[in-house]
Design a protein around this nucleic acid. Structure first.
Lengths: 345, 345
DNA sequence: CCAGGCTGTGGGAGCGCTCCCACATTCAGA
DNA sequence: TCTGAATGTGGGAGCGCTCCCACAGCCTGG
């Protein structure tokens, strides 16, 4: 079962290299009998086209890159990236493509790897995630005209493709929900404001509060996605002068887990003293007490869609920038102290 | 900055294609002046060798595969895989290689993807993880003579390379520790026994108990790595006829989180009523109350080592199977109720 | 003084494909 | 009947490298 090539398959089937190639690639204009004969030989020999030869000749590799810049260490404690990868691989598997993963645990990696990847023809295109605003990776990709899709909302989004969840709308929902439960002294633990996702959740929430005629006053703190930062932020909010807040929106599940600890450590109860709604809907529900009411975003679907969109960009069937936004929805559990029409989980 | 090739670089530097190739690949027998001249042109043009052309000619791709078969969905809730990927990418980044990720969320993927990957010359070799005993993937890799390294202890390990953590030794430590704290009615929540890691942890623990002259009796249950299975297993142990156990070893951090919930739900306290030691040392400590005493394994190091080992296998500098085992160590926190010499965290 | 080795360089061949054009055959329409 | 398209097939060229051999020039030792 040593490697065979097109020529050899052709010899065995009594046709030429070209005809075998046409069969392999599903080109038209091959007679049914010949096609069947060639396919039989292919199955019999277990023939697989040589990836390098194919991509040298055709200038396509069938490999997509997934780029996760900066702070990889911290990121992997968040189930978000696992889910995203799962979504992307599910799409690439389905379309017979291969996923190459590029993580930068150090700034230096970024500068050495990006040029290598981009100029060596290793990948047909890349999916870029989790970029901070003004991230140089995106500018670099634009400059060299490598096809790419951004996961998230790019800060300068006119000239590129992106797939995002409706952070703004979801955060508004959270505000309305807390207001609807009668809470009035509502606080916010915002995700980092140097990311568009962070900004959108923050602004959407403030917008929602405004619509409910609630003034947030000074009850704003900011975290950096980590559990510890959520705890610290909650502590800050709790130490503010009275009256104490009676509800809080936390910009991510992981930060919410930290915030819950701070609430408990302060001798308070969630949801009785402080109602909490978070964002992501991604933590296994039973991992926290009480279980989190959270705005759920469809992370795996985002990844899947990004991969499929990238393919259309790569093969040129779509050329005008598309911005796909997935809806988010409020999943009500215990931490908000509100009603749960559906019965939970 | 359109693609330039070797020939063109050569023309610009006044030398031949071959000489440029020698410079790029660091071959000897290039005069210093010529080398400097060529390097200048390369820097100036930002030249990068074309990956496909190179691998077509040399039969090497510089791409390593990481294969994670079966049950990907569940797996990504466990920080284990994130850490492993981090370790692997850190090594591949350092050696200028690229990582291709192969996840099988469905059995069917496995059968369609493995042959494609293996026969298309897409990767130089693969790292295979988390295989159940008797997994066909490994046999397939052996049959086609694709270089590979197993993460974990292969059930039939004589003829292959592997990198593992000392599951058995770590579990023995756990047994000795609980025994040393004076606990006598000790139970076990074992990881699945169709994995070598599960078997090793189970056997190591039983071995440690035997060395401490403790009989485990009927106090054994088995989980499947998930938090929920840990909860269910603990429930089973607690519902057994008296006398109730006073300590338990849980085969993974995630299962331990579930077990803690079962203990709490039964109105019992950890560590006062039941001391608990788990395995992995991978969960952020503050994620559980009380914080877990756990046998820590160096997951990222395992991944890093596996990648480096794979490279030596691929380039033929190592040919006799090597089995690398990383030591594990007991990290004492609160859940065992024992002394913590180092003061925590 | 010359055979035989090293050193540095150039260029041919070929890796296994895809792309394109050439060509044979068939078939429709004028 | 003949022209011209549609259909099916073969083969040349070339993608950008690496590998290997050829060869010029120089140095060494008998």
């Amino acid at each position: 079962m040593g490697r065979v090539n097109l020529e050899e398959i052709g010899r065995m089937a009594g046709v030429s290299r070209s005809t075998v190639s046409r069969v392999v690639n599903g080109s038209p204009n091959v007679s049914p009998e010949v096609k069947a004969r060639v396919e039989a030989v292919i199955t019999e020999t277990g023939y697989q086209p040589h990836a390098a030869a194919r991509s040298l000749a055709s200038n396509r590799t069938g490999v997509f890159g997934l780029v996760i810049p900066s702070a990889a260490e911290a990121l992997f404690d968040d189930p978000y990236f696992g889910r995203l990868i799962l979504g992307v691989t599910s799409a690439t598997n389905a379309m017979g493509a291969t996923l190459a993963l590029f993580l930068f645990d150090q700034e230096s990696d970024e500068h050495s790897i990006i040029p290598r990847v981009v100029n060596s023809g290793l990948v047909d295109g890349v999916i870029v995630t989790a970029t901070q605003m003004g991230d140089p990776v995106i500018r670099h990709l634009q400059r060299v005209e490598m096809p790419f899709v951004v996961v998230g909302r790019p800060d300068d989004g006119r000239a590129m493709f992106s797939v995002d969840a409706d952070n703004r709308g979801g955060a508004r929902l959270a505000a309305h929900h807390l207001a609807g439960l009668g809470r009035r002294r509502i606080g916010l633990i915002s995700p980092p404001s140097n990311t568009t996702a962070g900004l959108d959740r923050r602004n959407g929430f403030l917008e929602g509060l405004a619509e409910s005629d609630i003034d947030i006053g000074e009850r704003i703190a900011e975290g950096n996605w980590t559990e510890e930062s959520g705890r610290a932020a909650m502590e800050t909010l709790l130490s503010a002068p009275t009256p104490r807040l009676d509800a809080v929106f936390v910009g991510s599940d992981r930060m919410a887990a930290g915030a819950l600890r701070a609430i408990r450590d302060a001798g308070l109860s969630c949801p009785a003293d402080i109602a909490l709604v978070s964002f992501d809907g991604i933590l296994p529900p039973d991992q926290t007490v009480p279980r989190l009411t959270s705005v759920a975003q469809p992370v795996a679907e985002v990844g899947e869609r990004a991969a499929r969109l990238l393919r259309t960009v790569v093969d040129g069937s779509v050329t005008t920038p598309e911005h796909i936004v997935f809806p988010t929805r409020l999943v009500i559990r215990e931490s908000c102290g509100g009603s749960n029409p559906a019965g939970g989980s």
